[in-house]
Amino acid sequence: GYDPNALYCICRQPHNNRFMICCDRCEEWFHGDCVGISEARGRLLERNGEDYICPNCTI
């Protein structure tokens, strides 16, 4: 089920109804503003069928 207190992202904070994006490599969720991806950019990636790779996986 959905846990509203689950911690995500590099900031280890809950979802808090903020835009989030999922890394296509590790499948962890990240707040867009923490990883520099706007909601519009996230939608563009999705539309173009491009993967989002998080900072942890791009090292």
Rank of each mutant, 00 (worst) to 15 (best):
D24H: 14
P4L: 11
D24N: 15
H15A: 07
R47M: 06
E39Q: 08
F30W: 03
F19D: 07
R47N: 08
H31P: 00
H31D: 02
R41G: 11
R43C: 15
D3Y: 10
I59Q: 06
N16F: 05
E27H: 04
P4W: 07
N48S: 15
C54S: 01
G36V: 05
I21F: 04
Y2S: 13
G42P: 06
C11W: 00
E50Q: 15
T58F: 04
C22Y: 13
C26A: 03
D51W: 01
F19P: 13
D51R: 10
C11P: 00
E39I: 04
R47V: 15
P4Q: 09
E39L: 08
R47W: 08
R12A: 06
E50S: 05
D33M: 05
E39R: 09
C23P: 03
C54P: 01
R47S: 11
I21Y: 11
N17G: 11
S38D: 15
Y2H: 14
R12M: 03
C54D: 00
E28D: 14
G49R: 08
C54V: 01
C54E: 01
Q13R: 07
F30G: 04
G32K: 04
D33F: 04
E28W: 09
C11R: 00
H15S: 14
H15K: 06
C57L: 01
I10M: 11
P14G: 11
A40V: 06
N56K: 02
G49Q: 06
I37L: 08
R25T: 11
G32H: 10
T58Y: 03
L44S: 11
P14W: 02
R18K: 10
Q13N: 08
R18M: 14
R41S: 11
E27T: 10
L45C: 08
Q13E: 12
E27N: 06
R41L: 07
V35M: 09
Q13M: 14
G36S: 10
H15W: 09
G36C: 06
G49A: 12
C23A: 00
G32E: 11
R18A: 08
Y2F: 15
D3F: 11
D24P: 13
L44N: 13
E28V: 10
D3S: 14
C54I: 00
D24T: 09
A6K: 02
R43M: 11
P14A: 10
F30E: 00
D51F: 05
R25Y: 14
R25P: 08
E46D: 03
C54H: 04
E39M: 04
R12E: 09
Y52V: 06
I59M: 11
F30N: 10
G32Y: 02
W29H: 09
Y52K: 05
N56S: 13
Q13D: 11
G32M: 08
C54T: 01
P14F: 07
C26G: 01
P4A: 07
A6Q: 07
C22H: 12
L44D: 08
G32D: 12
N5K: 04
E46C: 14
H15N: 12
R25N: 13
C34Q: 01
R12C: 04
R25I: 05
N17T: 08
E39V: 09
Y8S: 14
V35F: 04
D3R: 08
L44H: 13
F19W: 10
W29R: 14
H31N: 01
Y52H: 02
L45P: 10
G49N: 13
F30Y: 09
C34E: 02
E50M: 06
R47E: 09
S38L: 07
L45I: 04
P55A: 13
D51G: 13
Q13F: 05
I59R: 08
C23Q: 01
F19E: 03
D24Y: 07
M20A: 03
Y52C: 04
G32I: 14
R47K: 15
N5P: 01
G36I: 06
F19A: 05
C34N: 00
C54L: 00
L7C: 08
D33I: 03
N16Q: 11
N5C: 02
C23E: 00
G32T: 13
F19V: 05
M20T: 12
F19K: 05
G49E: 15
E28Y: 06
P55V: 05
L7E: 11
